[in-house]
Nucleic acid binder design. Structure first.
Lengths: 141, 141
DNA sequence: ATCGCTGTTGAAAAAACTTTTCATTAAAGG
DNA sequence: CCTTTAATGAAAAGTTTTTTCAACAGCGAT
């Protein structure tokens, strides 16, 4: 039983073909996938999968933090597998490839400064970086 | 002529009642507003305003960076006036009140570290903080 | 293995959200 | 004031997401 299956099971959820197919699609992908794209990829493994189930599965996986949304200034429609210990995504503006990174230490100084400056108590944050991946840098050079 | 009107004008756009109404709504609000909410607020000033125009206006204002989307882990449907020089928003989880802050300096160290670690070239970022505003902290205490 | 309970599923439909189309209106410069 | 043309509102189309519900399939007990 894989780690995510373990996680589902201990949350009292069943390991189904649909869920395996969605996780498979997200595991294969190296860029964020929209629900529609997840469906297309996942149907290769589980033909009768429906879009509704993709939505439900993505919501479930998000709640369990196995999957995360990718955010862009113009919307937030992509989903991404979370890498354990890495809370933030870095997405290539050319090809969409995404990697994750951690950097809590660096952010804490900023948060503390903002707390003092605003009087807010900061509980959570959302950080995402955009740039050009090594692969796409080569293509240009 | 206000600053945002100046900005619109120099982009070759007209200053219309609809645009004034949308800007008015966003100026009054201290929390991010959805397009629907913008419509409701703005209609107080410009009765015949339609939702379509709200969408068009928000897109225009976003392009000119006069307005920005608010992002949450579960979606990105709110719009927020941008404060000049402040690129990031801090949103109260209780009442939705938002303030903006800057912190480029703090983030640059992180970005540089990530660039070295991943090989990506980082061009842009999205950072948003969530917490409890001073007002809502009082309500509890 | 089989059974039964109940969480899950897929399809259809509904709801919500966003964009397109187009005739009409109204800014802004002359 | 006119004229030009960007902008508007309403309706319709398109897209995305959620709800409903009968049928299905995990999985624990037998």
């Amino acid at each position: 039983m894989t780690e995510w299956e373990q996680r589902l099971a201990s949350a009292g959820c069943r390991i189904t073909a649909s869920r395996r197919a969605v996780m498979h699609a997200l595991t294969q992908a190296d860029a964020p996938l929209s629900p529609q794209e997840v469906l297309e990829q996942a149907q290769a493994v589980h033909r009768q999968l429906g879009l509704v189930t993709v939505y439900r599965t993505l919501n479930l996986l998000s709640e369990l933090h196995l999957v995360r949304r990718a955010h862009r200034e113009d919307g937030c429609h992509g989903y991404l597998l979370t890498s354990p210990g890495h809370r933030h995504a870095l997405i290539c503006l050319v090809c969409g490839r995404a990697v994750e990174f951690s950097g809590e230490e660096d952010i804490n100084a900023l948060i503390e400064r903002v707390e003092v400056g605003t009087g807010y108590r900061v509980d959570d944050h959302l950080l995402q970086l955009f740039g050009i991946c090594p692969h796409c840098q080569e293509d240009k050079g």
